[in-house]
Design a protein around this nucleic acid. Structure first.
Length: 586
RNA sequence: GCCCUCGUAGCUCAAUGGAUAGAGCACCGGACUUCUAAUCCGACGGCUGCAGGUUCGAAUCCUGCCGAGGGCGCCA
């Protein structure tokens, strides 16, 4: 927002450096001055001083940095946008003129079509996220990939990338065969009830139970897998029909979560191509075919001439010739680049599969696919239950998504009824949905990707504190003021009064928003956004308490109204980027 | 055995190598005749697991150790 001014000062500083024959720093690395009630940008001269110290051993770096800062501060020409220049401990701090700064920030937000939106980067990224297995339940453990992936896509898009959202569902594999086996034997002809996904999961759990009780039945599973592999119509038809039940159920869940995809890839879709690629790898001498006694493997460490084990051995086809996850993964990676012209292909998958991806990608690299270097794993830690219990359908240690959503909505509904009993049923339900889903999504985003989320009902349904409802509430308050104000002042307004500290702090947080988006996009970390947004909400709430808008003197009121509108825009944009609704009342 | 994460306030978590390490929860004390108190203000709370190293400067980078979790040939 102040690039021009920053560049200008930068040039002036360079000139001072030249005049004093100081070594030119490569870049000044501007940062905001640690906020203390005044806006400013800051740079330091430690690097330059350290550079000098190399030729002049006796030099005290911090002292010299301070001298340079003093020198620059004294020699900079008078500034329009900076009202105060200060050298402090090796830093040079340039403080903005508060009137010009606040007016610029607020006017920029109001006059930009999408404040914070980055310039088009001309890069196409595919983000694959949410990889549910058909014929299984969809539980809270599956939620993180979906929610994180969705938010990352929204942020990347807003930051200026072209994003293709891919879903990859596992519709074949041993788990599916086990389900089909159980269905054929014990549930033949049944159709799913309204809650299809839960029912699919129940039947899967039942299949596992039966097989554990009677391990001898495993041979029937092998046999059935063989029949599927030979594409026997009876089995294929049943598989297709039952798979659809799951797929439809997943789509319903994605709709509820407001998550959409551009392309659905099925596991089975890439099976044939996967096997073909395995053949090629064997021909090229990259893979070893040890069938029928052993599988088809790639000895990665040997191929790379590594002495210490790193990539180990990747199995790419079972000894009986059926496909593995890795078989399909090889083909899927290729298919993605064939279908789209991608600059990068990102996989949002949990951390347990890190090695797996490294192996597959290294194999593709060895096979000579140039795009293999543009594959990227966005790994995240699991959602566990208290006591670090992993959610697993077969262990029965799961919280079903349907249950969580229902509970969160109903809890939110109770609160709405208590806080705002006059609203009609429809409004209350809409708010309950926004708040309930926000409460579910926020904890999955407001955390370093590499850290485990521990799910417990109490925390998940706690609407207080550092959580989505807090931000939504600030948005509601902003809306409420604007509604009562009956329109905004038509023209841009400069504040002609001394700003309240809460206003200063609010404007500071708003001004950071565009940079935060870029940062979150670059690092694939919605966390940066949740944090910044919380800060905007917090400073807005303080402002709301401290600085009256509607009852203020006209010139104060006009500027504050614009500030409220700017806050509203940032809050709703930010929530939207997290996939969280921003209700107008609650 | 090899590899990957993580270790920060009582608890849950932040902090592009940069200035006095910050929030929420919990606990304690205050604020509703006010634009919605799902809010605000204050107090309490820290040898950033330990020991070295690199650097003008380390919670952050490197090495070792301790602790927790995860991954390592036909599950996905």
């Amino acid at each position: 927002m102040f690039q021009e001014e920053q560049k200008q000062v930068e040039q002036q500083i360079y000139n001072i450096f030249k005049e004093n024959s100081l070594p030119l720093p490569e870049d000044l690395a501007w940062t905001p001055v640690p906020f203390s009630g005044e806006w400013g940008i800051s740079t330091s001269f430690f690097k330059v001083a350290a550079l000098e110290a190399k030729s002049e051993k006796s030099l005290n770096v911090p002292q010299r940095a301070e001298e340079i800062a003093q020198l620059v501060a004294e020699n900079l020409p008078p500034q329009e946008y900076f009202s105060r220049i200060e050298a402090a401990g090796g830093y040079l701090n340039l403080y903005f003129d508060s009137r010009l700064f606040s007016a610029r920030v607020v006017n920029t937000v109001l006059s930009t079509e999408f404040f914070g939106k980055g310039d088009p980067k001309g890069k196409t990224l595919m983000v694959e996220f949410s990889q549910p297995n058909t014929h299984k339940a969809f539980h809270v453990g599956h939620l993180r990939s979906a929610i994180l992936g969705d938010a990352v896509c929204r942020i990347l898009e807003f930051a200026g990338h072209d994003v293709i959202r891919a879903n990859y569902y596992g519709d074949i594999g041993l788990h599916v065969i086990k389900w089909l086996w159980n269905y054929q034997k014990f549930h033949s002809g049944e159709t799913p009830p309204a809650d299809a996904t839960r029912w699919m999961g129940d039947l899967y759990a039942e299949a596992i139970r039966r097989l554990e009780e009677n391990p001898g039945l495993e041979s029937e599973i092998r046999e059935l897998y063989g029949r599927w592999d030979r594409q026997e119509p009876e089995i294929v038809d049943l598989w297709k029909q039952t798979r659809q039940w799951s797929v439809d159920g997943f789509r319903d869940l994605y709709d509820v979560l407001d998550i959409h995809f551009d392309r659905f890839y099925a596991n089975s879709e890439v099976e044939i191509q996967g096997k073909e690629m395995v053949d090629e790898l064997i021909k090229k001498g990259i893979a070893e075919d040890l069938r029928p006694d052993d599988a088809v493997i790639v000895r990665l460490d040997d191929l790379l001439g590594l002495k210490k084990e790193k990539y180990r051995v990747l199995v790419i086809l079972r000894s009986d010739g059926t496909a593995l996850y890795s078989t399909e993964e090889l083909a899927l990676a290729k298919l993605k680049f064939e279908e789209y012209s991608l600059d990068k292909s990102i996989y949002v998958v949990d951390v347990r599969q890190s090695l797996h991806f490294q192996q597959v990608w290294k194999t593709l690299e060895i096979a000579g696919f140039s795009w293999a270097e543009n594959l990227e794993h966005l790994s995240y830690e699991l959602v566990n239950l208290p006591g670090n219990v992993v959610m697993a359908s077969r262990e029965g240690t799961v919280v079903l998504l349907e249950d969580l959503i229902r509970e969160a909505k109903s809890r939110a509904f109770e609160v709405v009824e208590e806080k705002n009993p006059d609203l009609n049923q429809k409004e209350k339900k809409d708010i309950a949905r926004a708040v309930g889903l926000g409460a579910i999504k926020f904890p999955m985003l407001d955390r370093e990707n590499t850290r485990i989320v521990t799910f417990d009902w109490e925390t998940a349904l706690d609407f207080n504190g550092q959580a989505a409802p807090y931000i939504q509430y600030a948005h509601v308050r902003a809306n409420s003021i604007l509604k009562k104000a009956d329109g905004l002042p038509a023209a841009a307004i400069d504040p002609v009064y001394e700003l309240d500290p809460t206003e200063v702090s609010l404007i500071e947080n708003i001004s950071q928003f565009p940079a935060v988006i870029q940062n979150a996009a670059r690092e694939y970390k919605p966390l940066h956004l949740t944090h910044a947004l919380y800060e905007v909400a917090r400073s807005f709430n303080a402002f709301y308490r401290q600085a009256p808008v509607l009852t203020a003197d006209p010139e104060v009121r006009d500027f504050r109204l614009q500030l409220v509108e700017a806050s509203r825009i940032v809050l709703s944009t930010g929530l939207n980027l997290l996939g969280i609704e921003a209700p107008k009342v609650m």
